[in-house]
């Protein structure tokens, strides 16, 4: 479903060129549960950004759903993101002036889906996240765990097939983090492809496939058939 071949992503920092992704070739299957770990600056986030079509590789090929993304224009990439990819960020990135329900419904609103269909789907998602009684609260009235659950709701409201999470538990305490991880694992059980970038070994260990990156390269890629 997702195939990267010889993907290179360079950044110029001052006079130096940093290889954030250095000849990365990797493939993911539909329904995979992958954790990407590694030290800071190893290219984990860049990998996630490339996978999420937020960033373009300097060279190499990236096929998403059997479609070469290299030739796609910005509009087409945006359309792919809208339909197929959900993002969960460490900083939640909720819109502070919108209620939990409106934050979850935001992608549908931006996509121009009519209010009735939107309301129905948002109600569904709120119930699935156990946030029904928090629907009309704004982010500053929610706990960290609740905020991340709202953010996850927003990521899945368009029923994407790929969920990309960048340090989803980074801003949460152990208990809230555990709840969030359980939630995204449940989504993975329902069939969504889940790729989690994390520093947290506990979180990383729970994935079925562990990818370890060092200096922009895939250092280790192992399968764990536990649980």
């Amino acid at each position: 479903m997702i195939v990267l071949e010889d993907v290179e992503r360079d950044f110029v920092v001052g006079d130096e060129t940093v290889h954030a992704l250095d000849q990365v070739s990797i493939a993911f299957e539909a329904g995979d549960y992958v954790s990407v770990m590694g030290p800071s600056g190893s290219g984990k986030s860049t990998l996630l950004n490339v996978l999420g079509l937020l960033d373009r590789p300097n060279s190499g090929s990236y096929r998403l759903f059997d479609q070469e993304t290299r030739e796609l224009g910005e509009e087409q990439r945006a359309a792919l993101r809208r339909r197929h990819i959900g993002f969960v960020f460490q900083a939640f990135h909720l819109v502070s002036r919108l209620t939990a329900a409106d934050n979850i419904g935001l992608p549908m609103m931006l996509a121009g889906i009519e209010p009735r269909a939107r309301h129905q789907r948002v109600t569904e998602v709120l119930a699935a996240l156990g946030l029904t009684d928090r629907a009309q609260h704004r982010p500053d009235q929610l706990s960290g765990g609740q905020r991340q659950r709202v953010a996850i709701g927003r990521a899945i409201v368009m029923r994407p097939s790929l969920l990309l999470a960048d340090e989803p538990t980074g801003n949460l305490d152990q208990h809230a983090g555990g709840e969030v991880v359980e939630l995204i694992e449940r989504l993975n059980n329902d069939g969504i492809t889940l790729i989690v970038v994390t520093h947290d070994k506990e979180v990383g260990r729970r994935a079925r496939r562990h990818v370890r990156m060092v200096d922009g390269r895939i250092d280790r890629d192992t399968l764990h058939a536990h649980d």
Binding site: G52, A78, A79, R82, F87, H93, P107, L110, R154
Partner: peptide, 16 residues
């Protein structure tokens, strides 16, 4: 800026 980045991540085209 963050909100605009979010809108883009959610698949909002530049012209929108």
């Amino acid at each position: 800026v963050a909100e605009i980045g979010l809108m883009k991540a959610l698949g909002t085209p530049a012209r929108q």
